[in-house]
Amino acid sequence: MLRDLTPGDATGLVAGADLDGLRFEGARIDGPLGGATFLECELIEFAGDRVELRGASVLESRVLRLAAPVVSAPGSSWRDAELIESRVGALDMSNAEVRRLVVEGSKIGWINLRGSVVQDVVFRHCAFEEVDLGMAKTARVAFEGCTTDKLTLTQRTGAALDLRGLEFRALEGFEGLRGAILSPEQVALMAETFAGHFGVSVRE
């Protein structure tokens, strides 16, 4: 995947750019990239105080070691893409279309997928502070070796949300668990939460 890429010129990283078959290394992003299209591109060691990707498309591309306090990508499209070994304070992918994405080895404070279509996505060996899937439509989403302080599933719909590989300390949106897969250990740890949801008193 992604062979014979042409070195890209960082001056071409602008809003609305149409970028195809390019490799960018060590670029600092200071301006908006809203509406840009990355097709079969590799983005290595990007950095910026705020990376603006509103409405952008990341297609058949790989992002490696992205570092930014904020990545703002509402309404963006991610398809057949990878986000690897990245450090992001807040990653806003709300109202986005996310299909066949792998996020691996990354530390992300808050990932916001609220209202997004999230299908065939794998989060592998990632540490989060909050994962927000509120109002998302999910299918075949899995976590492997991940942790988060808070998981939000308010009004999430869909099937095959595999949470067995996600260690979470707090859950918001109990109804969003419908169609999810939990391990026996997770169910045991959440027994009190389940009982409270169904109005059951647990006493000795």
Rank of each mutant, 00 (worst) to 15 (best):
L5A: 10
L5M: 08
P7T: 07
D9V: 04
A10I: 09
G12I: 01
A15M: 11
A17T: 09
L19Y: 01
F24I: 07
R28A: 07
I29C: 02
G34F: 05
G35C: 10
L39G: 03
E42L: 09
L43A: 11
E45D: 15
F46E: 05
F46I: 05
A47M: 06
E52W: 08
E52G: 04
L53C: 04
L53M: 09
R54A: 12
S57T: 15
E60D: 11
V63E: 01
R65W: 03
A67P: 00
V70R: 13
V70T: 11
V71E: 02
V71I: 11
V71P: 01
D80G: 07
V88R: 04
G89F: 05
A90Y: 03
L91I: 08
D92G: 01
S94F: 03
S94Y: 02
N95W: 06
A96F: 01
V98G: 00
V102E: 12
V103M: 08
S106K: 08
I111K: 07
N112A: 04
S116P: 04
S116H: 06
V118S: 10
V118G: 10
Q119V: 12
V121Y: 08
V122Q: 05
F123K: 05
H125P: 00
C126V: 14
A127V: 07
E130H: 02
D132Q: 06
G134Q: 08
G134Y: 06
G134R: 14
M135D: 13
A136G: 15
T138I: 15
R140L: 13
V141E: 01
C146L: 05
K150N: 02
L153F: 12
L153E: 11
Q155L: 06
A159P: 09
A159M: 15
A159R: 15
L163R: 02
G165N: 04
F168V: 02
R169D: 10
R169A: 13
L171D: 05
G173I: 05
R178C: 07
G179V: 10
G179L: 13
I181P: 00
S183E: 03
P184N: 11
E185N: 05
Q186E: 11
A188S: 14
A188M: 08
L189N: 07
M190E: 08
T193A: 08
F194M: 14
F198N: 03
G199V: 06
V202Q: 09
R203S: 13
